[in-house]
C-alpha cells in the first residue's frame, strides 16, 4: 500500500517535471526570457507583453513608437489627458493617474503584464506596482543620454531591434539636418512667463539634441546641472538668455499669441534673437515637460528644421 502510493507519487512528479521542461522549452522557442537591469535590480521578462501600462510620457512615447498599444497611461502634467502629440497615436487607452500620482486600483483593474515606470519612482510605490506586474524603473535620470531609457523600455517591451532602428534613424536625421545649421550658434530654450522666463537646463533631452545638432547652450543653461529649469529670471537679466536662437516654450495652444505678448515687453523685444526674427514659440508639453521618446524627438527636429529653413 505504502509502496504503491510512493511509486505513484514518484511517477507523478516525474511527469510534472517533464511537462515543466517541455513548457519552458516551448516558451524559450517563442521568445527567450530576458533580463532587464532596473533601478530596483534585475527584472526577468518572457514573451512579448501585450497589456502594457506606461506610467510616464516618455514610456508611452517609446511604447507607441515601436507599435505597442499600451492599455493604460498617466495624464500629461497640468492636463487630464494624454499629451496632444501622442493623443491620435494611442487609440483607446485608460488614464490611470497623473504624472505625480498613480491610481493603483486602476492599474490593477487593467491586469497589465508589464508596467513601465518613470525613473524617479519611490520604492514603496515600486513595491506595490511590482506585485501587480513586472515593473521597469530606469536607472538613468533625465539628465543622462535620452537614448539609455529608450533602449531600456524597448528591451522590456521585447522590441530592442525596433528602438535601436529608430535611434539610428534619428541619428541619421540629425546628421542630415546638422548640415543646414551653422555650427556654434547659441540656442536658448526658456519657459516663457511674463514676469521673467525660466531657463531650461542644457543637460536635459532637448539640450542634448540641440548640442548634437551643433548648437551651443547659454552659460546659465549649462550651469543647471541638476535642476531641470531655473526660477523666473529677472527681466533685467534677460540678456543672459540671448543668443542666435530663442525657443520660447509655452503651454498655450496659440504659441504665436504668446510670442506677440512677449514682444510687448521691451526687455524681450530688444534681444538679438528676437530683433533678428529668430525667436520661435514651441510646444511646452514637448520642449519643457517630461517627454523624451523617439516621437518627441521627431517633433523637436521638425520644429528646428522649420525654424532653420525659414531663414
Amino acid at each position: 500500500m505504502n509502496f504503491t502510493v510512493f511509486k505513484y507519487a514518484r511517477r507523478l512528479t516525474g511527469r510534472l517535471a517533464l511537462v515543466g521542461l517541455i513548457g519552458m522549452a516551448s516558451l524559450g522557442a517563442a521568445a527567450e526570457g530576458r533580463s532587464v537591469d532596473t533601478a530596483f535590480g534585475k527584472v526577468t521578462l518572457e514573451g512579448t507583453p501585450t497589456r502594457v501600462v506606461a506610467l510616464s510620457e516618455n514610456a508611452l512615447d517609446v511604447a507607441v513608437s515601436v507599435g505597442a498599444k499600451p492599455v493604460g497611461s498617466v495624464a500629461t502634467r497640468g492636463g487630464n489627458d494624454i499629451s496632444a502629440y501622442l493623443k491620435d497615436k494611442v487609440g483607446d487607452i485608460k488614464i490611470v493617474g497623473t504624472a505625480r500620482q498613480t491610481n493603483l486600483e486602476s492599474v490593477f483593474a487593467l491586469k497589465p503584464d508589464l508596467i513601465l515606470a518613470p525613473p524617479d519612482l519611490a520604492k514603496n510605490e515600486y513595491e506595490k506596482l511590482s506585485m501587480i506586474a513586472p515593473t521597469i524603473v530606469p536607472k538613468a535620470t533625465s539628465f543622462q543620454d535620452w537614448r539609455i531609457n529608450v533602449e531600456l523600455y524597448g528591451a522590456a517591451l521585447g522590441k530592442e531591434a525596433e528602438t535601436g532602428a529608430s535611434i539610428n534613424r534619428i541619428d541619421n536625421r540629425i546628421e542630415a539636418l546638422k548640415a543646414h545649421i551653422t555650427p556654434g550658434q547659441v540656442a536658448s530654450v526658456v519657459r516663457w512667463n511674463p514676469q521673467g522666463p525660466g531657463i531650461m537646463s542644457a543637460h536635459l533631452f532637448v539640450g542634448q539634441l540641440l548640442k548634437q545638432l551643433g548648437f551651443k547652450p547659454t552659460a546659465m543653461a549649462e550651469e543647471l546641472q541638476s535642476k531641470p529649469h531655473s526660477d523666473p529670471l529677472s527681466l533685467e537679466n534677460l540678456s543672459r538668455i540671448d543668443g542666435d536662437w530663442l525657443f520660447l516654450s509655452t503651454l498655450n495652444a496659440d504659441g504665436e499669441q504668446a510670442l506677440q505678448t512677449a514682444r510687448q515687453q521691451p526687455a524681450f523685444s530688444r534681444l538679438r534673437a528676437v530683433s533678428e526674427e529668430r525667436a520661435v514659440s514651441v510646444d511646452g508639453q514637448i520642449w519643457s515637460s517630461g517627454a523624451s521618446g523617439p516621437l518627441a524627438v521627431n517633433v523637436i527636429l521638425d520644429d528646428v528644421e522649420k525654424a532653420v529653413s525659414a531663414q
Binding site: G78, G79, N80, N193, P194, G196, T250, N252, A258, Q264
Partner: peptide
C-alpha cells in the same frame, strides 16, 4: 480650472501668485 484648461495655464498662473514686474505697459 487650471487643471482642465491647458490653454490658459500660463495666463492664469499670474492670478494666483501676483507680481509687479513684467506687467503690460
Amino acid at each position: 480650472i487650471l487643471l482642465n484648461d491647458q490653454r490658459s495655464a500660463d495666463e492664469i498662473r499670474f492670478w494666483i501668485i501676483g507680481a509687479l514686474a513684467g506687467r503690460p505697459q
